[in-house]
Structures are given as C-alpha cells and as structure tokens.
C-alpha cells in the first residue's frame, strides 16, 4: 500500500514537472513547425517571465491577475521582437547561422538579466495561494493543482485554436508549405510573429509555474527547463503539438520515477538515454511524422 502510494506520489510529481516541460516544449515545436528553426533562446523567455512576474507583483505591487497578464504580454512581445530583430533577417540564411544567432540571443537575454538583477539569487515566494487537497493518503499541493489545471486549460485552448480557427488553419498551412500559403493570401511574416507570440506566452506561463515551485530567481534559471523541454519536443516529434505535450509529460514522469527509485544523480542520464533509444527506433519522435525530403 505504501509503495503504491509512493508511486502515485511520484507520478503526480512527474506530471507537475512534465506539465511545465510540455508548456515550454510547445513553443519549441510550434516555432520549428512554422519558422523551421530551433529557437535556443526559448528557455530564457521562461527566465524573463519569472523576473517579470517578480517585478510586477513584488516591486510594483500590482494585483496578481494584472501581474500575470502583464508577464504573459511582456514575454509575447519579447518573442515577437527577438524574431523580428534576430531571426527574420536570416530567413533565407543557412540553418547554422540561425542556430548560432539563437544561441547568441540566449546569452544576450541571460546577460541583460544579470546586468539588471545581478548574480545573487533572489528569493521569491510562490504567488500561488491555493490550499492543497488530501485524497485518501495522497496529498496534492496547491502548486500542483494549479500547475495541472493551468496546463490542461492552456493545451485545450491551444488545440482548439490551431484546429478550429482561421488563424490556426493559416498556421498549419504555413507550416506545411510556405509558398502555397502565401498564394492563399496568408502573410507568412504575420503568421511567424503570431507563432512566436503564442510560444513565448506559454513560456511565460511555464515560467510563472516554475518559479512558484522553485521560489528562487536566477538569470540562468531558464536554461535547464529549456533544454529539458527541447528534449521533450524532440522525443514527442518536433513540429507536432500533441507530440510536445505528450513528450513533456512522459519526460517529467520518467525523471521523477528515476529520481525516486533509481538514482537522483542518474535521472538526467536516464532521461537522455530514453531520448537516444526512442530516436534510434523512431527517428521522427513518438508522434512525429517522417518527412520524406524530395530532391
């Protein structure tokens, strides 16, 4: 009974961490699908989100809802600006140039944060003020409940948006064939901007949830969840939104279970090991489609 209980607890932990990975992974996968690039600065948007929430709620003392909305808007706008400044001029450049630029953008964001907020970690108590619930012998913390709830809402909303709205349909068209989409009258630039806005907005949400869990602000706090979420996106099949959701959750659960039952030190190695095995068996990822390149 107690083993079952502990497994359930670890599953819920994994689900919580995995939800955050999933929210971030969606940004990687959408940007890859539409703009055909890996935005390595995406993880640092989480960091900006966490600091933005701190500024709006702790320094400016804005009401929580306003602070959260402003945080999401800040990150969305930042996402659009980074694309316009750094990536758009490289639209027809070799992918290596874009990759290096994205890494540069990541360093830039981290160092600007370092300049403004200094290297000393800033303690920042969770803004989530929800009491946990007890299900039998199982305890679910407020942060866990909010994280799971917010993630489910965000994923349902995103799925509906992409599949049911005109803008979502345009996004799928651009992702499949940019030139043909242009012939339909779809502005490729506007669609790419929208993609960056949505991805960065979700990263802001992830940043808020992440900081509610870890309660310490550092300029490099986005790096680790960023890279994990990238792994999740590849695991699920880069370019596929359900793949990113699924990959994030799976990754969180594997990480949590291996931390609890195998080894804390080895948990990351196990996570990457799973990625290697999945890619060996199915190179396009769990839910990804194999694209046959036409010559």
């Amino acid at each position: 009974m107690s083993l079952l209980n502990s497994i359930l607890e670890q599953l819920i932990n994994g689900l919580r961490t995995g939800s955050i990975y999933a929210l971030i992974a969606i940004g990687y996968t959408m940007v890859y699908g539409i703009a055909k690039m890996i935005n390595f600065a995406h993880g640092d948007i989480i960091m900006v989100g966490a600091y933005a929430l701190y500024v709006y709620s702790s320094i400016l003392k804005l009401p929580l809802v306003a602070a959260i909305i402003l945080t999401v808007v800040t990150c969305s706008v930042l996402g659009i600006i980074t694309e316009k400044i750094a990536y758009k001029p490289l639209r027809n450049a070799p992918s290596l140039a874009v990759l290096i630029t994205a890494i540069g953008m990541s360093f830039l964001l981290q160092n600007v944060a370092l300049l403004i907020f200094k290297a000393t970690p800033i303690p920042f108590a969770s803004v989530v003020n929800v009491s946990g619930i007890r299900l039998g012998s199982l305890y679910l913390s407020g942060t866990t409940l909010v994280t799971l709830g917010v993630t489910v809402i965000a994923m349902v909303a995103l799925t509906l948006f992409v599949n049911k709205t005109k803008a979502g349909r345009a996004m799928r068209a651009v992702s499949e064939d940019r030139g043909a989409a242009e012939l339909m009258g779809i502005s490729v630039n506007a669609t790419i901007s929208l993609t960056f806005a949505i991805g960065s907005g979700l990263a802001a949400v992830a940043g808020i949830l992440y900081i509610s869990q870890y309660e310490t602000l550092m300029p490099t706090l986005g790096a680790l969840p960023g890279i994990k979420a990238f792994v999740a996106a590849v695991l699920g099949g880069i370019g596929s939104i359900p793949g990113a959701m699924f990959g994030g959750i799976i990754l969180g659960i594997i990480e949590s279970l291996s931390k609890a039952y195998i080894s804390t030190q080895l948990s990351d190695a196990i996570v990457y090991g799973v990625l290697v095995v999945v890619l060996l068996v199915k190179p396009s990822g769990l839910l990804g489609k194999l694209k046959i390149e036409k010559v």
């Binding site: 005109k166 349909r169 345009a170 799928r172 068209a173 499949e176 064939d177 030139g179 043909a180 989409a181 012939l183 339909m184 009258g185 779809i186």
Partner: peptide
C-alpha cells in the same frame, strides 16, 4: 489573381474542406 501552382501543392495534412476554405482566406 489566383495561382494553381505546379505540382498542385495542396496542404496534405489538412482536409479537403480546410484546403478550400484557405482558398477563401482573403
């Protein structure tokens, strides 16, 4: 001005209906 491109270039992962509605995008 509409353009039916070489090789058709329909959106393979979208339904026939969705493809048609994209034609009326503007």
């Amino acid at each position: 001005m509409a353009h039916v491109p070489e090789g058709r270039r329909v959106f393979a992962d979208l339904t026939v209906y969705e493809n048609l509605m994209l034609g009326a995008y503007t």
